[in-house]
Amino acid sequence: MSHQYQAIAWNRQKRVYDVVLVAGVTLYLTLFIGVSALLFPYAAAKTLTIRAAGSAAFVLLHIVLCIGPLCRLDPTFLPLLYNRRHLGVLTFVLGAIHSAAAIRQFHSLGDRDPLVSLLTSNQDFGSLPDFPFQQLGFLALMILFLMSATSHDFWLRNLTPPVWKTLHMLVYVAYALLVGHVTLGLLQSETSPLLAVGTGFGLLTVVTLHVAAARREAKVDWKTLGPAAEGFVNACALTEIPEKCATVVSLNGERVAIFKYDGKISAISNVCRHQNGPLGEGKIIDGCVTCPWHGYQYLPEDGASPPPFTEKVCTFQTRIVDGRVWIDPRPKPPGTRVEPSLIGTSEVMA
């Protein structure tokens, strides 16, 4: 959490994550270069470096993009999300190695500046097979740089989570540019069906997972709540909420997490203050609602993080009538204490 500044709050999970990540990438690069050198003995070392780093970055970007929807569809994947930013930074580093080696090989021997040469040597924007694909890759690299440079919590806090998240949604633009870079570059000169099938499979996986997760999310937003009475909305049945977990409902377009714990019901905003993670998909641990993304915690009664932490989320007033939870859709200011609704014996029986 965040009560004092630390460059990186290392813990065991982060170290294990990074060791596995670096070991995996090293293994991939070694295997790629080793097998390629055996199969294509005349390939230059520079060419192998360009292809190994570029393909590793492209594969990593697919993994980065799949983690989000996988976590929405199955919480088993949540540990992958915990340190996803390090995956993104490594993707940029590999992309930068690929880019530097390619510029050195293809643009450094002329009389023009290599960057000028990269951006101006091919202007055939009207032709698909001759499209200047290198510019697409360069633009994608700039976006990945911007995202890596602002990936630290320092920027998250200063830019505010909504601005930061909007900025980091540029990853989809970078992905689109890279699909264009690979399709109009590598796949034009290398006609092996394996490469085309691999690229198509990656694209299909990313699109399918995102569409599946979006359909699931849309169900929450479009779910019709029961009729309102005295300013309260009939939100859900008590039996729908698992113990120490929440049911998420959408009120006036905003999501609210209704938690059941120790014979009580409390409702707080579903949006974590850290990275806007889904609090309603977390559990109550040690009496606190715990965000499933990075473990930020809030007390269910007042939506405030326990001292010394200072994060606060909105709370909502609740009622229990005939085994159903009713909720006042008007949010209380962040950190406002609201008495939990007590679950009576009759409701427990219901």
Binding site: Y175, A176, V179, G180, T183, L203, V207, H210, A214
Partner: peptide, 15 residues
């Protein structure tokens, strides 16, 4: 994402 889900397969197949 829905725009990209239409655009990217079209770009890939055209390429």
């Amino acid at each position: 994402f829905f725009v990209l889900a239409l655009l990217l397969p079209a770009l890939f197949l055209s390429g």
